[in-house]
Amino acid sequence: MSGNGNAAATAEENSPKMRVIRVGTRKSQLARIQTDSVVATLKASYPGLQFEIIAMSTTGDKILDTALSKIGEKSLFTKELEHALEKNEVDLVVHSLKDLPTVLPPGFTIGAICKRENPHDAVVFHPKFVGKTLETLPEKSVVGTSSLRRAAQLQRKFPHLEFRSIRGNLNTRLRKLDEQQEFSAIILATAGLQRMGWHNRVGQILHPEECMYAVGQGALGVEVRAKDQDILDLVGVLHDPETLLRCIAERAFLRHLEGGCSVPVAVHTAMKDGQLYLTGGVWSLDGSDSIQETMQATIHVPAQHEDGPEDDPQLVGITARNIPRGPQLAAQNLGISLANLLLSKGAKNILDVARQLNDAH
């Protein structure tokens, strides 16, 4: 009898209710805020589980004197976190989706994509230029951005401005803007500013005609071990179906173009009346040469937790077992079709030249 009692006690200790789920994140304040929001949602869904947040620095956090596009290494903000995932030191990792490459290392998958916040870019102005827009900034004003995508589009749109690289986390960039006289304004992701509670610093939100956004911008991705079915089931509740389908289309477009950090590629997606609209573009580094096109596809946005595919093969690095396969494939095909259209119009040449120029500098 006593033996059975011990077995029952052991089973209770090993039951999922007692389990601590370890969540990996970057150390920056924004990353911690984003991770806290994901953990809060998981806690609400699984009140019996405990969650421990483990923060670590990544290569991208450490190399702050070089433009991201020049470092010449993929997975700048993800490699150390993936290493911890691989060694079973954490069970899942919360990322900004735009930091996750469209091809993940073997053994990993994006197990959830959370509801997207505003994906557009924002302009934050130096205190002396508050009330201005990019259009009304004085001639030769210097605007800071760490992104080739932003610089290429904005140089084309605002030729009277000069664009220079600015690195560091959000706090560091804002301090550089406010305390030094080098920059009249800087460009940042609206979602990051909003998550930090800095709505009052948003001086201008850039519309798609001015600057399309990065693939996955404004959404959070939760990376897990691809074979860890328990954790895949656990994080599945975080999937937002519309965000998922938009981001599958965007990531398929980028992957098929073979774009990345070192080339200016941008997108804009919208879901309306059962249609998914995808606009994508590529630019030369100075913005003088560009190709942009829009395509659409009829896609039914499923309700969360309709029964999805059981075999769960990944699409552009994403596993969404609780979302039907048909809409996911339709979104992926839309991204591939748009990429093929741009490639047929000469996108590869623009991107190759951009890559060579970026590598040469």
Rank of each mutant, 00 (worst) to 15 (best):
Asn349Lys: 12
Gly287Pro: 03
Glu223Phe: 02
His199Arg: 12
Ala226Cys: 12
Lys140Pro: 12
Phe163Ile: 13
Tyr277Pro: 02
Gln332Leu: 11
Ile166His: 09
Thr243Phe: 00
Val282Thr: 07
Ile113Gly: 02
Ala189Ser: 08
Asp289Gln: 15
Asp289Ile: 15
Gly218Tyr: 02
Lys62Asp: 15
Glu209Met: 05
Asp289Asn: 07
Ser262Val: 09
Leu137Gln: 06
Ala122Thr: 10
Phe129Trp: 01
Val130Thr: 09
Pro313Asn: 08
Gln332Met: 15
Leu64Ala: 15
Arg321His: 11
Gly346Val: 08
Arg116Ser: 07
Cys211Lys: 00
Pro127Tyr: 00
Glu52Cys: 13
Glu310Asp: 06
Phe77Leu: 03
Pro327His: 12
Glu250Ala: 00
Asn358Ser: 15
Ala191Met: 02
Ala297Gln: 04
Asp286Gly: 07
Arg201Cys: 07
Lys140Asn: 11
Leu100Gly: 01
Thr41His: 12
Val215Ala: 09
Val142Ser: 10
Pro324Gly: 06
Arg164Asp: 12
Asp312Gly: 10
Ala266Thr: 07
Ser147Asn: 00
Ser337Arg: 14
His199Glu: 10
Leu170Lys: 03
Phe108Cys: 10
Gly131His: 13
Ile166Asp: 00
Val316Gln: 01
Ala122Asp: 04
Leu104Val: 10
Leu104Thr: 06
Ala249Arg: 02
Ala249Phe: 00
Thr59Asn: 05
His95Asn: 14
Ser344Ala: 01
Pro138Arg: 09
Ala330Ile: 00
Val235Tyr: 04
Asn358Ala: 15
His300Met: 02
Met196Trp: 05
Ile54Pro: 02
Ser96Cys: 07
Leu174Ser: 06
Lys157Gly: 12
Lys157Leu: 12
Leu357Val: 10
Gly308Val: 13
Glu210Cys: 15
Lys176Ala: 08
Gly335Lys: 02
Val143Ser: 03
Lys70Cys: 08
Thr279Tyr: 12
Leu68Ile: 12
Ile186Cys: 09
Ile71Leu: 12
Leu278Lys: 02
Val143Gly: 04
Gly216Thr: 02
Asp286Leu: 08
His256Gln: 05
Ser96Trp: 00
Ser165Val: 10
Arg246Met: 09
Glu293Ser: 12
Ala219Gly: 08
Pro47Arg: 12
Lys98Ile: 05
Gly326Pro: 12
Ile187Gly: 07
Arg175Ala: 11
Thr78Trp: 04
Gln153Asp: 01
Gln229Cys: 14
Cys247Leu: 05
Val282Gln: 05
Ile187Phe: 10
Val224His: 00
Arg167Asp: 05
Pro309Gln: 10
Asn322Tyr: 08
Lys348His: 15
Ile291Ser: 07
Ala40Thr: 12
Pro159Lys: 10
Thr172Ile: 08
Asp240Gln: 13
Thr190Val: 11
Ala151Gly: 11
Glu242Met: 05
Gln296Asp: 03
Lys227Glu: 15
Lys62Ser: 10
Arg164Lys: 12
Lys115Gln: 11
Thr190Met: 03
Arg201Leu: 13
Ile336Trp: 13
Gly280Thr: 01
Gly274Ala: 15
Glu179Asp: 06
Arg156Gln: 12
His268Tyr: 13
Ala219Val: 13
Met56Arg: 09
Ile113Ala: 10
Glu135Ser: 08
Gln180Ser: 12
Ser184Ile: 09
Thr102Cys: 03
Asn358Thr: 15
Ala330Pro: 06
Asp91Phe: 00
Ala112Thr: 09
His256Val: 09
Met56Ile: 14
Val142Leu: 10
Val94Tyr: 03
Val202Thr: 14
Asn333Thr: 00
Glu250Leu: 02
Asp240Tyr: 14
Ala151Trp: 11
Ala360Pro: 00
Ala191Lys: 05
Thr294Ser: 11
Gly131Ala: 12
Leu334Met: 13
Tyr46Ile: 08
Asn200Trp: 13
Ser69Gln: 12
Gly72Gln: 04
Leu206Ile: 03
Val263Phe: 07
Glu293Gly: 14
Gln314Gly: 01
Glu135Val: 14
Arg195Asn: 02
Ser96Met: 05
Thr243Lys: 05
Met295Asn: 01
Pro313Gln: 07
Val142Pro: 07
Leu170Pro: 00
Val94Ala: 05
Gly111Pro: 03
Ala40Arg: 07
Asp178Glu: 11
Leu329Glu: 02
Glu223Tyr: 03
Ala151Ser: 10
Lys128Val: 07
Gly317Val: 06
Val353Phe: 02
Ser75Pro: 12
His207Val: 11
Ala67Phe: 00
Leu232Arg: 04
Leu334Gln: 01
Gln153Leu: 07
Gly287Leu: 05
Gly144Ser: 06
Pro119Gly: 05
Gly72Cys: 05
Leu97Gln: 00
Gln356Phe: 04
Ile110Pro: 01
Gly48Tyr: 09
Leu174Trp: 06
Gln229Tyr: 14
Gly287Arg: 07
Ala226Lys: 15
Cys114Val: 06
Gly72Glu: 13
Asn169Gly: 05
Ala354Asp: 15
Trp198Leu: 12
Ala347Gly: 01
Ile299Asp: 11
Asp312Met: 08
Pro159Ser: 10
Ile248Ser: 08
Ile350Arg: 08
Ile110His: 04
Met212Lys: 03
His268Cys: 07
Lys272Ser: 13
Ile63Trp: 09
Trp198Asp: 09
Leu49Pro: 12
Ile166Thr: 06
Asp307Glu: 06
Leu220Ser: 06
Ala122His: 04
Gly197Asn: 04
Val123His: 03
Leu244Trp: 03
Pro302Asn: 00
Glu80Met: 10
Gly48Asp: 13
Glu162Ala: 07
Val215Gly: 14
Val142Met: 10
Arg246Glu: 02
